[in-house]
Each structure stands twice: as C-alpha cells, then as structure tokens.
Amino acid sequence: MYEFSYHRPASVAEAAALITRAVDGKFVAGGQTLLPTMKHRLASPSDMIDLGGIAELEGIVVNGNIVTIGAMTAHADVAASTEVREAIPALAALAGNIGDPAVRNRGTLGGSIANNDPAADYPAAVIALGATVRTNQREIAGEDFFTGMFETALEEDELIVAVDFPRPEAAAYMKFENPASRYAIVGVFVARTAPGPRVAVTGATACAHRAHRLEEALQGACNAAALDDFRAPVERMNADIHASAEYRAHLVKVMAQRAVAACV
C-alpha cells in the first residue's frame, strides 16, 4: 500500500470540505474493497477520508412505506434489523449474504453502491426496489445511479448519505455465487410493486441494470413459467474464467425464475 494522509471527519460537511482540498482524495466507508485494492497497489489516493466517525450516516429508519438506511450502515446491521426484515425481508436476506460475516461487520451499503462492483449484490436491490440514493448534494434515482463498471453518477466530492427503499409488495433476490470469491456470478432481484414487477440483474454485465425485458415478460403473469421462453442477450454478458457469456445468460433466466417463484 502506498502512504496517504488519513482523515476522520465527524460530519458530512467536514468530509466534503476535506475531499475538496485533497489532490486525489478518496472516501472510505468499510474499506472492504478499497483496502485490498490499495494493498495490491492498484489504487493510490493522496488522502483517505474515513467516514466511520460520522454518526449521521448510520442507522435504519422506517417511515411509512420508506425504509431509509444510512450509507455507513453495515451489512450485518441491515441483515439483523427487525425493521428491514419486517418491511423488505429480501433486502435483509441480501445483506446477510454479502461476503462473509466479518466482511459484513465492516462493509456498508454506501461503500458497496459507490464502488459499484459489477458483481455486487446491493446495486440489484437499489434498482429493482426503485430506491432513491440521497447524497449531500441531491437525490438520485437508483436506476440512474449505476452508470458503468465501477462507475456511478456521483461527483468527485459527492457523498452518499442514505438510501430510501420503498417497501414492495414482495421481493426476492437469488444469486449464483462464484465458488472462489463468493461474489455473484449472476444475481437477480425481483420486486412486486403496485405499478408492476421490477427486476434488476447484477453480475451478468458491466454493471447492475434494470432488466426491462424480464419485466415485460412478467407483465402478464408474474410467475416462473412466464420466463420459460426468455433468453438473455449473450452478447451483453460478461465472460471470465468462472463463467462464459452463454452460461451467464442461462443463469440470468434460472435465477430470475427462482427469484420470481420466491417472490410471494
């Protein structure tokens, strides 16, 4: 790891000021992805601005049909939250299946979606549930937040404060894990909402995305059989040593069918 300057601000305002001043500053939330990357010397920020000391970024609040999760809330806390388990059990289950227990104790919602790993779980939930990402500057619709592999709509000095998740009628997330990293080779999040089913896919392509074609296929009858003839576009799929594009495309269908079946 290269040396850097370390800061631990106590407020969002202070954090924003620090990043503005830094030559090449980087916010660090739980650090579960950033630190390994830096250990391999693949990232070399001049300044690390640790968000761990900002109390206002942490916590879970349910207000009517909106579940608000602070950006610095750890996966383990989301998984264990009675509020989340009651309101959106699929989201709690997703959080409880990210990485491993120790990673879940440090990794955060904000860190996960800001990093936007193509195989991350949370982005699928943010998109499918139609969540809103609230930053220190604005609100961004979940669907518009993820713009490309490891890229988001966030500006350099913009900081995620919380994510508002509307409560769906039902939701389910199914992922097929990479046997080595346990990241998603393919993950599909399905939410039943009043206007209709919403589906997001992660792991399969450059970054998590809303799966409009899956949604269309589910418009009539929201059940697994409705996807029997569905074919995911092979040409858009990621391919690596763990899964070819063809296999990923197949898994999109299988995971989608299983998520739909579980979405009751």
């Binding site: 370390y6 650090g31 579960q32 630190l35 390994p36 990485g99 227990p101 120790a102 990673v103 104790n105």
Partner: peptide
C-alpha cells in the same frame, strides 16, 4: 484479498478481518 480469515479479531464485540482495516 480478505478471504482466508486467519486475521479475524473482535472489534467492539464484532468479528473483523484485521488485514482489511487500517
């Protein structure tokens, strides 16, 4: 890469990978 867990310690009562924390 934060996978093996040989470095797990408890921080404020929760397990953490000490190789993935400053």
């Amino acid at each position: 890469t934060s996978q093996c867990g040989a470095c797990v310690v408890m921080i404020d009562g929760k397990s953490v990978k000490a190789c993935t924390m400053l």
